[in-house]
Design a protein around this nucleic acid. Structure first.
Lengths: 344, 344
DNA sequence: CTGAAAGCGCTTACAG
DNA sequence: CTGAAAGCGCTTACAG
């Protein structure tokens, strides 16, 4: 049986029923007699019929589609971020598919301005926002979305007064785990390399975890042990040079990202300081490279599967008008070789 | 001015024109007087109005959406593949956006069966297929798509009798460049590590380029210099062990992928053979790790920007009923440290 | 359990 | 240049 673009009406004609009955049968309505339903579904299959989503969507005001907006300011240079996002994308699409949603993907610049359009144009029932970058700038977009009554979930930390709902990683817990690991190994002078400003709340939270762990061990975090650095290998390298040239004594480094950690390790090696014998190093992210550097980097890993699942669960709840709470998931310490022997 | 979900009718009422005129004005039809058009567009902006895509799509039988189907059999393990795909995704979305298309992403298993649905349900105007894996199995899907009159572009080599249109990398040229580079450095006994079977046409083409370069230099490719291997570090390692245990003499290795090359370099190091002094090594892919191993790996790079552009250009042409030719783009040799000094 | 009918919000020939 | 009208292919109250 052939037909270019069969409609429910075509099926109705063949089955000898009304078009309304076809529509009901295809949606498994209990209103239609089982035999009739089976007959109709069989014909639909033979004709290779699929419901026209535009027509259905127009009627129901739904698209069964989520828009995933990726704010990637790094222009493909920062591989680490990309890889984590890729993993998130993977998990988001799968989680969405399980719930009957398609995922529309858009790589955005923070300067772009069309994110409101997705829901207003009925292309998506809700948005998922994924991105690092400057939270201050980001904020404007969120306000605009909230004003437009767009349903959205943000990947990231829970920020006070921020509109919308979020799902993210408990970075403080991660920072605490990393630091505690170093303390358990007997390290006392633990340097922190990375930002701690409120503008990058994820890094600030990792720093807070660092401080919390130190305090818990009766250690006072010293300002001389903090070197600010953005996420790059070079800046990690420079940070260690700074520590050394200032004559700060340290026996461990908690780097706020793997990239910084890897740069730091290179600097240590260049200065004849061996890892982990002289100095232990912990990173954050567990980028693929982390397992390949030598010594293999001990680091904190975010579970992208849980992340994707949490975001999709949240946005679907919002779409279905169910209450949603912002949540954080716990990251996990991955112990490799850069910190040395088993914790005491 | 506030309104929950304004329609073109609402705008018409406010502007004092017919709904048809609003529709024309919003689409910049030359049929509507400029002043009227500007007035209407201003009102639309104030109301935060966006055309309902479901309604427009139902009318025009278009969705302005492409579906990107990623066949990823590696379940996230094979980072190299993921990264290249990520880059392709990035470029595809951007190229699509420039042409006014959204991109629907679906991570598929080869066992999934719903790829026909995208076009039949009017969710997408055409498909882009991206994936490695077994081409024999793949083939069935392509036949099904062709039968259903689905418009699609495949990322990959040009395969005889394969339905549809493709865009891919000229792997033979890549294999030739890699091998020629080794020849130019004075290497004569060049081992090839990887598959050469027709089932993996991409690798087969790289092998063909290897053979072509050798023949061009008057060298006969010897079977003892070929070690079959799938894409993994371990198999690259094993391949070198095999060559050594068989006592084959070689002064260079062309590995069909970076992962194999990296494994091979590790095996060489473990056997006290230095790279590039004793043996030169070339890979293929330019995965991020390639620049980080030591010595940094010379390899062949595929341009994901051109790839994404080519695929989108192709599918849009198919959608617009313009003729499309399958094409290959030239890859590029990235010279690093694993082959040694400047070519003669 | 089934059908006739309305209507979702557009686009576009047709008439003026 | 503008409007009245048809119709895209569904879903779902309403009536039986």
């Amino acid at each position: 049986m052939k037909m270019e673009n069969p409609t429910s009406r075509d099926i109705a004609d063949i089955a000898g029923v009304s078009q309304a009955t076809v529509s009901r049968a295809l949606r498994n309505s209990p209103l239609v007699r089982p035999e009739t339903r089976d007959r109709i579904q069989k014909i639909a299959r033979e004709l290779n019929y699929f419901v026209n989503r535009n027509a259905a969507g127009l009627r129901t005001h739904q698209s069964s589609t989520l828009a995933l907006l990726l704010f990637d300011e790094t222009d493909g240079t920062d591989k680490k971020m990309n890889l984590f996002f890729w993993s998130m994308l993977d998990n988001i699409t799968r989680a969405a598919a399980r719930r009957g949603y398609d995922v529309l993907v858009s790589l955005q610049q923070l300067t772009d301005d069309w994110h409101i359009e997705y829901q207003a144009s009925h292309r998506a029932d809700g948005l998922i926002l994924l991105g690092y970058g400057d939270y201050a700038e980001y904020r404007e977009k969120l306000d605009a979305l909230a004003t437009a009554h767009t349903r959205f979930m943000i990947w990231g930390p829970i920020v006070n007064d921020q509109p919308g709902h979020s799902f993210g990683c408990d970075n403080e817990s991660g920072g605490r785990q990393a630091t505690q690991h170093l303390l358990d190994l007997g390290r006392k002078n633990i340097a922190y390399v990375g930002r701690r400003a409120r503008r990058s709340p994820e890094h600030a939270a990792r720093y807070a975890g660092y401080v919390r762990a130190l305090r818990g061990a009766g250690v006072t975090p010293g300002d001389e042990l903090h070197v600010p650095a953005d996420n790059s290998e070079e800046l990690g390298y420079d940070a260690v040079q700074q520590l050394l040239s200032k004559g700060v004594s340290f026996d461990a480094i908690f780097a706020v990202t793997d990239l910084i950690a890897i740069g730091a390790m290179r600097a240590l090696a260049d200065n004849g300081i061996s890892v982990p014998e002289d100095v232990s190093v912990v990173g954050f992210d567990d980028m693929p490279l982390a397992a390949h550097v030598s010594p293999a980097l001990t680091t904190v890993q975010q579970n992208a599967r849980l992340g994707g699942e949490g975001l999709v669960e949240g946005i679907v709840a919002l779409i279905e008008d169910r209450p949603v709470e912002s949540k954080l998931m716990a990251p996990k310490l991955i112990v490799r070789d850069s910190c040395g022997g088993k914790p005491r």
